[in-house]
Design a protein around this nucleic acid. Structure first.
Lengths: 240, 240
DNA sequence: CGTCATATTGACTTTAGTCAATAGAAGTGG
DNA sequence: CCACTTCTATTGACTAAAGTCAATATGACG
């Protein structure tokens, strides 16, 4: 059930049998969501944290001026609002990008784990820190990369994250983001996303068919994106 | 000594005498840095985490294309690289903005605290999550706010953070950032920062003299910035 | 079959960046 | 304390990246 959490945290530390058991025995409410539904809503103060088991989700904030900023994309294994355990109320929402399944773990149970299993506490800190590292990388893109590099960089990131959780098929993966949504994630207009994607395609770096993206040569794309191998090490398994 | 950490964590939970004592008895190397010196360097794997006791610091990354992105500003009480406890190597550097004093706590000691004091473990998670919330807010600015709002928003944020640690004097505080540095933080060119600042000044929202900024009317500035009261609650003390 | 979201294109506007030059302030070595 | 860099702020003129508006096309879906 929460097996996906075991796998995620195992990327950080080798878990003992007891620790694995602790995670497996976490009570959790499993819940399904349709595309576009909110898993967590801005302004609320959850008493449980949601672990994404299947599907994809995105973290976003709607602004007063009518725009939206998507701040993260989440794939199975991600603890979508672990921070709500310590920081409330939610300053943003999280919604399903495609039909998604979520397991919710009560905060009080997390607190219990913290007291009982320091190594798991540390693994949860790692998970928080990993999200933060991804935010930083996105900040760099939003602040200092042009549209072309920015999109290329996102595709590199997703390529490796998808591979990590076994969702890469050959050189391609599902990317259920429309161009307007891509724009909201990258701080661009939909039109400009369209044009930048065309440039990437005509440079042979990316092939798209519907919602599937193929990266013929990840090395080339990484070079074009200024994708940092150090960042790759962070988001990947240590020995990978 | 590490009194400043006690104060910071107290914003999250009421600490017991024993917990306070635990923090106070943390061994720490105190070290001073001159303006511009790196407190932590990209690519290294620190064995201690640095707590900023005095001065200011900024978190940044130099890109291959010659640009730089500043990802955070830190003021006394901030644990500048707590994440290096769980995530290594450093994917960015942290440098002193002005002469700064730092206290370093060995990671092994943090691990010890984690095992012994679950509530402190939780407080450290809060600190990580708070940094992440600030990253998210900056992402929103970089992606969806124009130069004028973006700078206004930063000034609002600093206004309240400075107040929090007692560094606000009347309506003004020290902002030891040059315009080029401001640009690196906000994803703008120095020239454009200059012009946006002029606009803020001529609108009467901001007064600058050397490195000191005065905010005559924080309400007005907040409105201009689209500064979210919810964000304020996060970065402020609960009952404030 | 009609509707709605998405993708694409062209024409035009706006924001922000670049390049250069000027000027003042700060810091440094002698 | 002076001469000299060097950093910083400011301005003008020009360029470039990205946004806006509008139209068309395409495709999924009920």
């Amino acid at each position: 059930m929460v097996e996906t959490l075991v796998r995620k945290l195992s990327r950080y530390v080798e878990l003992s049998r007891e620790e694995e058991e602790t995670i497996r025995s976490l009570p959790s409410h499993v819940q399904d969501y349709g595309k576009g539904e909110n898993l967590v809503r801005e302004g609320t103060s959850p008493t449980e944290s949601a672990l994404l088991m299947a599907g994809m989700a995105f973290r976003y904030r709607d602004l007063a001026n009518g725009t939206r900023q998507i701040m993260a994309l989440h794939i199975p294994g991600d603890f979508v609002d672990l921070h709500s355990f310590v920081l409330q109320p939610m300053d943003h929402s999280v919604a399903a990008l495609v039909p998604a399944r979520v397991a919710r773990v009560p905060h009080e149970r997390l607190a219990w784990v913290l007291g009982r299993h320091p190594r798991l506490a540390r693994a949860l800190m790692w998970d928080l820190a990993l999200d933060a590292a991804t935010y930083r990388e996105w900040m760099v893109g939003l602040g200092r990369r042009d549209a072309y590099e920015r999109i290329a960089h996102l595709l590199c990131e997703l390529y490796y994250r998808m591979r990590m959780v076994g969702l890469l098929r050959g050189q391609s993966f599902e990317l259920p983001l429309s161009q307007p949504e891509l724009g909201d994630a990258m701080g661009l207009s939909a039109v400009h996303v369209n044009r930048s994607l065309q440039a990437l395609r005509s440079d042979g770096l990316v092939v798209t068919e519907k919602l599937r993206v193929t990266i013929p040569d990840i090395k080339k794309l990484s070079a074009a994106a200024g994708f940092d191998p150090a960042y790759l090490r962070l988001i990947s398994k240590p020995g990978d």
